[in-house]
Design a binder for these strands. Structure first.
Length: 561
DNA sequence: GGGGGAAGGACCA
DNA sequence: TTCCTGGTCCTTCCCCC
């Protein structure tokens, strides 16, 4: 979006407001769509934040260009040697023995809704809400409506749009039906979402002596017979290319790339980098404007610059893309690494409301952890401010926790440190999973919950007994330190019947629940005097400037070599 | 200097 | 009036050993 030089047509340089990367959007009146989105967005907090991010990106690219210009002939020669060696190594790892198929359901959520309500047939349809659209059918895409677009903008683009809410259960039901079919072709198929999957069809092709085209056709037919829904399929020697291929003849089509080196290299030579999974809007922009790379082949032509500017893992990824290499092995069963829950609401700086939202989120996260029998020790609080800036704050504990009470207890500490703040989203994420050390619960053990319910305000129900994960020993040992009197509503007394004696926070006497919560936080602080992990020194507070990714890092590497 | 935690961000469906 | 949710991976900064 960002700063623009074409004054009377500012939307034209608004690269964040429009993308036709989605299938079915060719032939859309791009300029009109861009103008409408710009008009609807400009001046909003969201738009301002996008401009801020754009400005950072622009600066990053300019610095990159400047540093590129500084590279001497000798530097470039040296990096070219490094690049050539790496390309040779990557090339030697090429495996053309596998046949991968990528299946992608066509406008899945919208197709399911139409199937269940045939009166929607032929109408422009989107699934989602006024805030956000999940899927748009092909009729709606003709108007520029697409997923990840807010509904109110979609209506501006297409006033006759039908908007239906997301019904996740329905999609899971149909997804299960598709998976039944996938299992017949590859019992170890990899599902990447409800509507996408990768299948290794090497054995099916060999065993039955049929072509990959035939298998693709057969699979699409089987999916249709099973679900009455269409899908698109891509077949290629690796998963990266199979995904690109499945997008080529969307909807209800297929594209097959042969397992021949020549065919692969020809295929990627003119392929736009944005078609590659893993290269999104930002990376495309950096590569295109920073290094003049817009096709996969350009990755090889500019390999010296790539080696000079990016980290080893990025270099490997970019060069692999240039060579048309991708994963060919079925990965080992991968365990979940984190689990999270977040909710967006109307922006508020009302602290009691924020803690209420936090408590709800803690409960939802705890429910999810319990469903999967998981205990975690790193808790991350995510906040989106009313200006759309995202902050995350994490804490790592000594023990693994799961209960709502423990999550809320630790999350509250993280949130309090950020207040006052106007917030529109609160999220909690649990990671670093492991075994809880002290369950099942010893009924005689005193817990955080019992401390609150017995020690501070008998009969209250704000915090219930944790059932599985117990209070840390350190926490427990501190529970006797300062048992607050119940007449003080916990650790706090209220000066002039209004002001918190510990922090000066003001709450009217009638705000009983809020006062109780406030008191609980101070209690929590007392309990945490001997914190499970000593608080680490916080990173320097990030100013706007320091949020930039320091490009010099890349060029320090230049000097090293 | 390496390992690991924290914070931020890109990307995906 | 309204710009999501839940997940993974990567990078950088920083502390500690």
């Amino acid at each position: 979006m960002g700063t623009t030089s074409n004054g009377d047509r500012p939307w034209e340089s608004c690269h964040t407001v429009y993308t036709n990367a989605k299938a079915g959007m060719d032939g859309v009146d791009k300029e009109k769509v861009q103008r409408v989105i710009y008009e609807m967005s400009k001046g909003s907090k969201y738009f301002e934040n996008e401009q801020r991010k754009d400005a950072i990106l622009k600066e990053k690219i300019e610095r990159m260009q400047a540093q590129c210009a500084k590279l001497t002939e000798k530097d470039i020669e040296k990096f070219q040697m490094v690049a050539d060696k790496r390309i040779e190594e990557l090339e030697s790892s090429r495996d053309l023995s596998k046949i991968w198929l990528h299946s992608d359901m066509d406008a899945f959520f919208a197709a399911v809704e139409t199937l269940e309500n045939p009166s929607l047939e032929g109408k422009p349809l989107a699934v989602g809400s006024m805030s956000m659209i999940s899927t748009a059918n092909y009729e709606a895409r003709k108007y520029g409506v697409r997923s990840a677009m807010p509904g109110f903008i979609a209506f501006k683009l297409c006033p006759e749009l039908v908007l239906v809410p997301v019904s996740f259960d329905k999609y899971v039901h149909y997804s299960e039906k598709t998976r039944k079919v996938f299992r017949r072709y590859d019992p170890n198929f990899i599902a990447t979402s409800l509507d996408e999957a990768y299948l290794d069809i090497t054995e099916i092709c060999k065993g039955r002596g049929v072509t990959r085209e035939k298998v693709a056709e057969e699979l699409r037919k089987a999916i249709y017979e099973e679900t009455a829904l269409t899908c698109s399929v891509g077949v290629a020697p690796n998963r990266l290319l199979a995904k690109v291929c499945s997008d080529i003849n969307k909807p209800n089509g297929q594209y097959v790339l042969l397992n021949e080196l020549e065919a692969v290299l020809t295929f990627v030579s003119s392929l736009p980098i944005r078609k590659i999974g893993g290269i999104g809007k930002v990376t495309e922009h950096i590569l295109r404007d920073g290094l003049g790379i817009s096709t996969c082949e350009d990755m090889l032509r500019k390999s010296a610059y790539i080696c000079g500017l990016f980290s080893p893992s990025s270099v490997d990824f970019f060069l692999s893309v240039g060579l048309g290499l991708g994963n060919t092995e079925t990965p080992q069963l991968r365990l979940r690494k984190s689990i999270s829950n977040e909710r967006t609401f109307s922006s508020t700086d009302d602290q009691s409301l924020l803690f209420k939202k936090l408590e709800e989120t803690a409960e939802a996260l705890s429910d999810d952890l319990q469903k999967e029998s998981l205990f975690g020790r790193t808790l991350t609080l995510k906040l989106k401010t009313s200006s759309f800036e995202v902050k995350t704050r994490a804490t790592s504990l000594q023990k693994f926790i799961q209960s709502k009470e423990h999550i809320f207890f630790h999350a509250s500490k993280l949130l309090r440190a950020e207040l006052p703040l106007s917030v529109r989203l609160i999220g909690l994420r649990m990671s670093h999973f492991g075994e809880a050390e002290s369950h099942p619960a010893d009924p005689t053990q005193r817990t955080l919950g019992s401390f609150f319910t017995e020690g501070t305000s008998a009969g209250r129900e704000t915090i219930s007994e944790p059932t599985v994960d117990h209070l840390d020993e350190e926490e427990e040992s501190t529970t006797d330190l300062a048992p607050p009197s119940s007449t003080q509503q916990g650790a706090v007394s209220w000066l002039n019947d209004y002001i918190c004696s510990l922090c000066g926070y003001e709450l009217p006497p009638s705000f009983l629940k809020e006062r109780q919560e406030h008191s609980d936080f101070h209690l929590a602080e007392i309990l945490q005097k001997e914190s499970p992990t000593p608080p680490k020194k916080r990173r320097k507070p990030t100013s706007n400037g320091s949020k930039h990714i320091p490009i010099e890092f890349f060029f320090d590497r230049t000097k090293e070599k």
